[in-house]
Design a protein around this nucleic acid. Structure first.
Lengths: 334, 334
DNA sequence: TTTATCTGGACAAAACTAGGACAAACTTGC
DNA sequence: GCAAGTTTGTCCTAGTTTTGTCCAGATAAA
């Protein structure tokens, strides 16, 4: 029954030395060996001179085990799991790891920045510094490292979200030049855009149209949603920013999408928003839910309710609703 | 069209003494010899008196092997790889990328000649079709395949450029929905944005600020330039679209850029363009050339000449000028 | 003549391996 | 709540492999 294995087509040929594995996973060389000694977490092949040689498969397992550990799992429990089982464990944890602190959270712009663990705060400081010094290389490096340290959803919520908020704030207060903001935004656009291609698609994922309505030029929130939902087995049909309602509806129709997600950030009170949202809702089959998020969504609370649109409180809530919808257990918003 | 060929190829003629190779790669002379002795990392040609003579190709390989080593690779593993394979390895490592596609069979050196125009036309048709059917997967696949078939500069000029033009035209004529255009643009934004990370950086590349001025919201042209110049050993400081002149100047200053490149597309006759260009030129040190390209550049011919800006006729001409500038042989536009 | 490069070999630093020790953090049992 | 046990990250030693540097004597170039 090799079919199941084939789905995760990760290379199992042994070729990477231990140092490279340490670099990629963020673990120390000592630790990788210790794990092998104690729990046979990975049993790498050996070169003719007994050097360990790891495969891509091994690396991915180690990376996931690291994340699982960070989420509080014990090594004994996760060590024997296959890659697929590990993915499940990590993906499940990622739904709770962030939301724990959400209760302690008072009003924050809708899906921007929930958790602020000290470690993430350090990461964000480092990122901000690299922006201010225009050190693009460091910026990318930090983003990659951050992604290694946690699961994608957690990373988006603890690092990218707060980072965006802080960049916006700093620029508004004049602590940072517009040029810095532009550079960071352009980089993040590329980085987040590439995230969803990390996932593997089978071709029968339900589709979701993701965009921002006319007048809303900031696309990073929408792009984050695209990356996020691809983790949960959706295929995002991403349209970029500033899409007219008619087009959104037509696209949803043509692609056979099961849902639509819009992001509202700036300007918060654009007069076109009510028109566009109304238009969209009326042109779209009623069985297709429309999610509205972003920091400016709260400005249109009334309207959203009246039209029967859905406005999840957080990225987590959105994921939850979409999971329900995907599994045909959707009743309305959580 | 052989012009493109000449610029993008890597010279394999042996001519550089070992000292120069050491300087360019950052390796010591002894080390280069030791590598040759032990692993035949490079087997340079010899002069009639047995002096080693290295080609540009050799130098590039050594440079990449040095980086691969830094990433934790063992010399035994990387020594026998071709330049292309090395590029893949290095770019994979530096991005911690999980390689999804195993198409390593079809090696093509990056200086392969561009495709016959008929073949590119077929590619573009296929791409257009995938856009119209909203088949994102196929779209990405075709882009990826197109890139394998030719060098990056050739790909940008024979596929991406014409594709953008055709998408714009089709939308304008109503043959295609705005939603289709949006989807394609969003995808291309991610795709082209990621291209420049295929290149590897040593940290001493000259920098070039790339953006579009205030009012110019289309960024794909600028992004293509960023990907293009990174091939030739420049480090693009990419600021995204719509950057005020003051900010461009400040950014060039802070980053110590050697050049600035602007892209003008739409609207072609925006009244802010003259103001912005004038402002930029006056705030920027005169030793920093400003290149202006894009389909709308010709509308401002007068102005560009008056301000002493440079407007290369093609992407090739831009590359040529930048190569000159990089090697301190710059006299003006070709 | 002086400087740069060549070959071949020697040597030392760095990295890896195996096995074990140790302390901090966490569990379990009382 | 405390003591005893377990888990886990880090460090140490000693032996091996890999890798970087240096040297000596010879030859070529400046």
């Amino acid at each position: 029954m090799a079919t199941l294995e084939t789905i995760s087509s990760i290379d199992t040929s042994p070729r990477h030395p231990i140092r490279l594995v340490a670099n990629r996973t963020g673990l120390t060389v000592d630790l990788i060996r210790a794990w092998e000694k104690r729990y046979h977490v990975v049993e790498p092949a050996r070169s003719d001179t007994k050097r360990r040689l790891y495969s891509d498969y091994d690396i991915e397992r180690l990376r996931l085990i690291r994340i699982a550990k960070q989420n509080g799992r014990r090594l004994v429990d996760v060590a024997p799991l296959t890659l697929e089982a590990l993915r499940d464990v990590v993906s499940e944890d990622s739904r709770y790891e962030v939301s724990q602190d959400v209760q302690a959270e008072i009003y924050r712009p809708s899906w921007t920045s929930p958790l602020e663990s000290s470690e993430s705060a350090d990461d964000i400081d480092a990122l901000m510094f690299s922006v201010q010094t225009m050190d693009q290389h460091r910026f990318d490096q930090l983003l990659q490292e951050g992604l290694v340290k946690q699961s994608l959803p957690a990373f988006l919520q603890t690092v990218i979200g707060p980072l965006l908020a802080e960049i916006g704030e700093s620029t508004r207060l004049g602590k940072m030049r517009i040029a810095h903001e532009h550079m960071a935004t352009a980089h993040l656009r590329t980085f987040i855009g590439a995230l969803r291609f990390r996932e593997t698609y089978t071709g029968n994922e339900p589709k979701i149209v993701i965009t921002t309505p006319t007048g809303q030029l900031h696309e990073l929130g929408a792009l984050m949603v695209a990356a996020l939902v691809s983790v949960d087995g959706w295929l995002p049909v991403y349209l970029g920013p500033n899409t007219p309602a008619d087009e959104i509806a037509a696209c949803a129709m043509q692609s056979g999408a099961r849902a639509v997600s819009l992001s509202l950030t700036y300007p918060a009170d654009d007069p076109r928003i009510p028109t566009e949202l109304t238009r969209l809702r009326s042109q779209l089959e009623s069985r297709i839910p429309v999610f509205v998020g972003g920091s400016a969504a709260s400005h249109h609370h009334e309207l959203i309710n009246r039209l029967g649109l859905l406005s999840p409180k957080s990225l987590d809530a959105l994921r939850h609703s979409l999971n329900m919808l995907r599994d045909n257990r959707f009743q309305g918003i959580a």
